[in-house]
Nucleic acid binder design. Sequence first.
DNA 1: AGAACATCCTGCTAGC
DNA 2: TGCTAGCAGGATGTTC
Length: 283
Amino acid sequence: MPEIAEVETFRYQLEPLLVGQSITSFTSSHPRSTRRHDSSQEVSNAVVGKSIISVNRHGKYLAIVFDDDTHLNIHLRMSGRLIVSDINEYDELNNPKHSHVVFSTDKHVFVFIDPRTFGEIWVTSGVTKESLKGIDALNSTSDEITDVLKECSKSKRMLKAFLLDQNFLSGIGNIYADEICFEAKIRPDALLNSLSEKEMKVVAVAVGKIINRACELRGSSLRDESFRDLYGEIGSYQKEHQVHAKAGEKCICGSEILKIKVASRTTYFCENCQKFPERLKKL
DNA sequence: AGAACATCCTGCTAGC
DNA sequence: TGCTAGCAGGATGTTC
């Protein structure tokens, strides 16, 4: 499932192929992919012929930015992905199932594939409002992340619910939330108002460490058919997962990894390595 | 305020 | 082996 590391992988790979180019065509074959607009023609009209100046990302939101400040926004949600072909090698008949949107430059064809159709592509003049929410989990310093945690220091929310809330930290999803809690050695169901300032700092540093490493390894591909990058390659970060999707397996400490629900999300953690803050202070 | 749940959707899988 | 019910999840909206 695309989270910040997977979206950043697409951004990083799209940038050199798109910047300086113009969109020559944009077509959609599934109305849900461009559901914010009356028709995909509206999107086409807004982007075709315009020159691309950057490819940006905020949290899980991708934006192809044009020289008149038009933004072509892409959110992959659960099952969205992008693939690229050389324009001379592109054959529409070879498109995978659920290829819903196709757009081109003079050199490349980009295909948006999305089996569950939760993903979407839309156009805005200037940044989309969602990109203004929260601070980006990758491009923020641990001090900035600590400050956001401090703002919520009286909150009775659980740590994992906070990490998943895009209004505070943008980009973290279910996989990295579990790994961040493990790295911080704090239970995902610990309440924010039980964290000391020192523990907030530990969480903030864990966010940076996990997200940066996940980006270095081009994201996580949990199953054979899950995340693939722009070139169809799987990511490698799943090899370094400590707890996520490992229920019943042994933690590095030897204890069994548990599976519970936190914030109505499936959550994996180690009861031995991860403690409630009150107990952490006693150790 | 915050948790829980339904919603959107299809592919996978656990369980008959 | 083959079928189906249930689960999975990001964001949003509703309910408790």
